[in-house]
């Protein structure tokens, strides 16, 4: 499973302040720390309160690339900000994200095709998040088919079945895992899958434990990537171990370090 480092996000106070004050040091530090601990993409999100999302995203892309060569995952609901960021990315990036809504898919898949970007696709539409696996998979199919029409191949897509907090929507957990299994049957090559890992533990008292248990359970269902805290050593060790148990990496005594080094 690929870890997309979640820490450069304006939801965190230090990052919000750094964006406001254009303090590159904070961003450099988080980019390096996440990469060193095994992140393979870096998520960039200017935060919901940014007054100038386009300019802030451009700045984030530029300063992050000063500190790390990892591909970037541009995370915004404002597609102008994502498009401005894509133009500055030195390597093909990932767009985070698009729901199964016609107008948004049109905008995002056209942009993805132009910039050779991967896309995180949300299994939801105007009506919200489906309750069961069947309807999540139906939305995934809609996303895969629409992307194909724009020339974006299925393996450029990361379908997010959308995880909800286990304390408020406990019945969704199993549905999400079933969705992950079924998504792999949609096409050949199949789309990839991703989750925003920390959603599963929002508002609970054992956040890290719940995150890492869910991560390994989801990996067993075929999960390819997670937006997660790459600096959570226990999580990274659990993911590295699950990769060994799933025969994705060849075992050696230093397998955790090897996973972190990529």
């Amino acid at each position: 499973m690929i870890i997309i480092g979640e820490r450069i996000n304006g939801m965190f106070k230090d990052v919000a302040k750094a964006i406001r004050e254009r303090d590159a040091g904070v961003i450099h530090e988080w980019a390096r720390r996440q990469e060193k601990n095994g992140a393979r993409y870096l998520d960039l999100n200017v935060g919901p309160s940014s007054a100038e999302p386009v300019e802030a995203m451009k700045w984030l892309v530029e300063v992050t690339q000063e500190a790390s060569n990892l591909p970037l995952c541009l995370d915004s609901t404002k597609y102008d900000a994502i498009e401005a960021g894509l133009k500055l990315c030195k390597r093909p990036a990932m767009i985070n994200s698009v729901p199964a809504e016609a107008a948004k898919m049109e905008r995002v898949f056209a942009m993805a095709a132009e910039h050779n970007a991967e896309v995180i696709c949300l299994a939801m539409n105007e009506e919200g998040i489906p309750k069961d696996a069947e309807n999540r998979v139906a939305l995934a199919m809609e996303l895969v088919a629409t992307a194909d029409a724009f020339g974006v191949a299925p393996d450029m897509l990361f379908i997010d079945p959308l995880v909800l907090p286990c304390n408020v929507a406990q019945d969704h957990g199993k549905e999400v895992m079933e969705t992950m299994r079924q998504i792999k049957l949609l096409s050949d090559p199949p789309p990839k899958t991703v989750v925003g890992l920390s959603n599963v533990s929002q508002g609970t008292k054992n956040r890290e434990l719940i995150n890492r248990i869910f991560a390994v359970m989801a990996m067993a269902c075929g999960l390819d990537a997670a937006i997660a805290d790459a600096c959570d050593d226990e999580l990274m060790a659990a993911v590295a171990t699950a990769r060994i148990l799933l025969n994705m990496d060849i075992y050696c005594d230093s397998y955790i370090d090897v996973f972190k080094q990529g």
């Binding site: 060849i250 075992y251 050696c252 005594d253 230093s254 370090d257 090897v258």
Partner: peptide, 10 residues
Amino acid sequence: DINICKQLNI
């Protein structure tokens, strides 16, 4: 032994 092979290289 593939595991020792990899470990020794590391």
